[in-house]
Design a protein around this nucleic acid. Structure first.
Lengths: 142, 142
DNA sequence: AATGCTCTATAGCCAAGGCTTCATTTTGAG
DNA sequence: CTCAAAATGAAGCCTTGGCTATAGAGCATT
């Protein structure tokens, strides 16, 4: 029983980090979806983005404004949305991480449908260290 | 190549669910922490709760108000915070899930420190189905 | 070229979850 | 028993991310 009494600041760090992750999670999701839309349909329209994200159209517009502020996307009124280099790079990283998380869940015996659902929330909290471990595990079991 | 074009509403569901999970995540964290504090120190004071959660004291007070509204906790001014039966049950479930997620990450080769950090964010998104799969996996490899 | 339909933007609302500042209550030291 | 320090509560502000309603731009079809 190494039941060391938790140091308050250590625990606090956990939550602080979880909050920070949360703050970027939406940006990641939008960026990834914009990438998907461009890949699938040649362009990302606000209406499609909103439909895919499950939000009302003005909510998507607002999110795009934030992406622009953060330098991840560009958009001109009544034209589609595009990713900056930084945005495209982020989208690629997010997509790769998402794929690994889904594969891991499936490898662990989670039904595919459930894996897709759970991965959407989980992926944002997977650190690089954990991601590397996941990849190693998947590789090890072919 | 079963590259079925994703149905917008299906994708939307993923995000909608992730948002719903997020909405209860904080409640879960607070309830769990209140349980911890009572177990460790006999009572949960607002100041300790705030310190452990890494937030300012009024933020914790506000959260407690929400817990009361949701029927998960009770509190009288200038006295500690207590869990209702529903709150205690939730705390227990959350604690159990947290433990499984940490153990799983460690079993997958994630360093313990990292596992603790990542688990904090991940756990909330682990459905019952996934949790069951995790437990089966852990059991299978003793 | 005009007109109407679709898409996008704008405005304004709400709740959640942060924060600081200030008032009030408890409590413990003297 | 008093009174100051510590703990708690109250008020008010900010940002984010939802929403609806409404106005305006763009496009297609007469």
């Amino acid at each position: 029983m190494t039941d060391t009494p938790p140091r308050p600041e250590d625990q606090a760090d956990r939550f602080t980090r979880a909050r920070e992750v949360q703050a970027v999670a939406l940006l990641e999701d939008y960026v990834e979806m914009i990438g998907d839309l461009i890949a699938e349909m040649g362009e990302a329209r606000v209406a499609d983005l909103a439909a895919r994200m499950g939000v009302a159209q003005p909510t998507a517009t607002k999110a795009i404004a934030r992406l622009k502020r953060e330098g991840l996307a560009t958009a001109r009124p009544y034209r589609g949305v595009f990713l900056t280099e930084a945005g495209a790079a982020l989208a690629e990283r997010v997509r790769a991480r998402h794929r690994v998380v889904v594969e891991l869940l499936i490898a662990l015996g989670v039904p595919e449908k459930v894996a897709e659902l759970d991965a959407e929330g989980i992926e944002h909290h997977v650190s690089d260290a954990s991601l590397a471990a996941f990849e190693a595990f998947l590789r090890a079991r072919g």
